[in-house]
Design a protein around this nucleic acid. Structure first.
Length: 560
RNA sequence: UGGCCUAUGGUGUAAUUGGUAACACAGCUGAUUUUGGUUCAGUCGUUCAAGGUUCGAGUCCUUGUAGGCCAACCA
């Protein structure tokens, strides 16, 4: 513990300070409060990791609370997806809560506020109320209904609850201060009438509480100690506290709200609205499209929960605006996949190689290491024969010394196999290379221990045996946006930056051991990248997603 | 032109609360390597500006500047 050198973020400093000033460690409790109106994305992951990370750090419970106060947008489908995503990230919540479970308590408290003349029923239209609100630089005007009697307010409020009025006929407002410099304090709406069925309470209620009236009170009911939200809620804190002031019991814990900056990721967007737009416009195929920065998209793409948690941990949390480079996410992804992904060979852009001095019809099963980073992963057998596929870009008729791959007259090692030498090549009528004829050194077999096998050859290529290869659809993903900050341009819509080449589907040739790969299985296709089996796979057809390429210093050299 | 928040390498985050500005990524060199992967070694580069307090300021004060948030019966 004393060796824990990890520095604290500002939230942890606040908690440590609270602890020092007498806060009992057992009183610590956190919550992750999603609204079930969409899918979770990488930005939420940061918040999830923050709250659940705090729970782990202080051994404190963390509730999963659905902020379900708006039946017009919320659905059970989203509740289920959110639970799946949080669990997949590896976290266990203490209680599964719903703001809708507190509707009765909230209603009772609202009546108390009316009795204390801290709330009133306003019967104006939303336009009228908006017009009276004033602006940030000028005070608002008081509603003509502001001073209704307690009795009348009580009666009207009950009528609202009982469904006696049309939507929009009345609202319940807190009576605070129409001249406050904080617009949120200008008699905010607490309840509106909505004749809509709710995903949990069905038609029990036809009035629904607003966010501000619900959130802090839910925290209080659950005795959440630190209620963490994003920066745009900072002005809400005054109102959060005002509501608590009206009803907090001094022998109960009083929650405190603190705000942090939402995390933005380069080359993507993290906003439910924009994500929805991508789905509805057909730019992607759904919420879990592997190009989406949703948790479900990242999962399908092949990301591991560990990599996302490490990423969240590294970027930390603060109060300033930020755009985290996606390469940091990819670093953590590769770091983890490098440790766990079995290596296999697959050729994506095949070029046939014929080993002219290898017997026709002969085949050998060679030993191949499954993961050089993990000895316990063991070895497997891969077939070798006279006809092989290598990558087109691994052969050139001529090339300089920097090109470590196959060229005419040059030698190269076939991974786990033999050293071969390119003797000649064939071309089609338009000059494209169609086949390379090579000779092999029979004594150079990998692992045989012979002098020849130990020879240093600069290049090593991956390959598959033509007669043994199986095929699969391989989906190559590139960044969804061509710009680092697609939604950071005032005069251009983010949709203009959608990368038209973010998905390429090709046929790949794979070593036969992949025949039995299961949906979700992750592999490193050697020298190419990490791939996983997509859920679109069937018994007849394998589909692989490219999760991320390997780091490629050769590609960088070539660009120069 | 009201109120509030923020400002540290290219990016993100730290700095024992006033005491040598550091960590990770990215970049660049080189070594190792049967993956141009991994690993290892090295390297580049930072406190928004101007004043002030102080022996000493990223940290405190003043004034600027820049960016963000706030006028939904959304959350």
């Amino acid at each position: 513990m004393a060796e824990d050198v990890k520095s604290l973020n500002f939230i942890e400093h606040i908690i440590e300070e609270d602890l020092r000033s007498g806060y009992a460690k057992d009183d610590l409790r956190f919550r992750f409060p999603p609204e079930p109106n969409g899918y979770l994305h990488i930005g939420h992951a940061s918040s999830i990791c923050l709250n659940f990370g705090l729970g782990l750090r202080y051994n404190a419970p963390v509730n999963l609370r659905f902020d379900d106060t708006n039946p017009t947008k919320e659905e059970k489908e989203y509740v289920d997806a959110i639970k799946e995503d949080v669990a997949w990230l590896g976290y266990t919540w203490d209680q599964e809560c719903y703001a809708s479970d507190y509707f009765q308590q909230l209603y009772d408290w609202a009546e108390e506020l009316i009795k204390k003349e801290k709330a009133y029923v306003d019967s104006q239209s939303s336009e009228e109320i908006a017009n009276q609100k004033g602006t940030p630089t000028e005070a608002g005007k008081e509603s003509p209904y502001r001073n209704r009697s307690v009795e009348e307010n009580l009666k009207l409020f009950e009528g609202m609850k009982n469904g006696e009025f049309e939507e929009g006929a009345h609202v319940l407002r807190a009576k605070i201060d129409m001249a406050s410099p904080n617009m949120l304090m200008r008699d905010p709406v607490m309840y509106r009438i909505l004749h809509k069925a709710h995903h949990r309470t069905n038609t029990d209620w036809c009035i629904y509480p607003m966010y501000d009236w619900t959130h802090g009170e839910s925290d209080y009911i659950e005795q959440v100690s630190h209620s963490l939200c994003t920066l745009e809620f900072l002005p809400h804190r005054e109102l959060y506290n005002w509501f608590l002031d009206q009803l907090v019991d001094s022998d109960k814990l009083r929650p405190k709200q603190r705000e942090f900056a939402r995390r933005n990721l380069s080359h993507t967007v993290v906003s439910k609205r924009k994500l929805l737009q991508l789905v509805e416009s057909g730019a992607v195929e759904g919420w879990d499209d592997p190009r989406m920065p949703t948790i479900s998209g990242l999962r399908r793409r092949g990301y591991t929960p560990e990599s996302i948690r490490n990423f969240a941990d590294t970027i930390g949390i603060a109060k300033r605006e930020n755009v985290v480079d996606v390469s940091l996410l990819e670093f953590h992804l590769r770091e983890h996949l490098n440790k766990i992904a079995p290596r296999v060979m697959a050729v994506l852009n095949p070029l046939k190689v014929v080993i002219t001095n290898y017997h026709e019809g002969k085949e050998e099963w060679l030993d191949a290491e499954n993961n050089p980073e993990d000895e316990s992963a063991g070895t497997r057998k891969i077939p070798f024969s006279r006809e092989l596929y290598i990558e087109q870009e691994d052969f050139r008729e001529e090339a300089n010394r920097k090109f470590f791959r196959l060229k005419l007259g040059g030698e190269v090692r076939l991974k786990n196999g033999y050293i071969i030498k390119a003797e000649s090549c064939s071309k089609d009528s338009s000059g494209n290379i169609t086949e390379v004829q090579c000779s092999y050194d029979p004594k150079s077999k990998s692992g045989s221990g012979t002098e020849e096998s130990l020879r240093k050859v600069k290049g090593t290529l991956h390959w598959v045996s033509v007669p043994h290869a199986i095929t699969a659809e391989v989906r190559l993903y590139d960044r969804l946006f061509t710009d680092a900050t697609p939604d950071g341009h005032k005069e251009k819509d983010f949709m203009e930056f959608v990368n038209p080449e973010s998905l390429t589907k090709i046929t790949g040739y794979l070593e036969p051991s992949l025949q039995n790969a299961k949906v979700g299985d992750r592999f490193q296709f050697q020298r190419l990248g990490y791939f996983n089996v997509d859920k679109d796979s069937s018994d007849e057809k394998l589909v692989f997603n490219r999760t991320v390429t390997l780091r490629d210093t050769w590609a960088k050299l070539e660009q120069k």
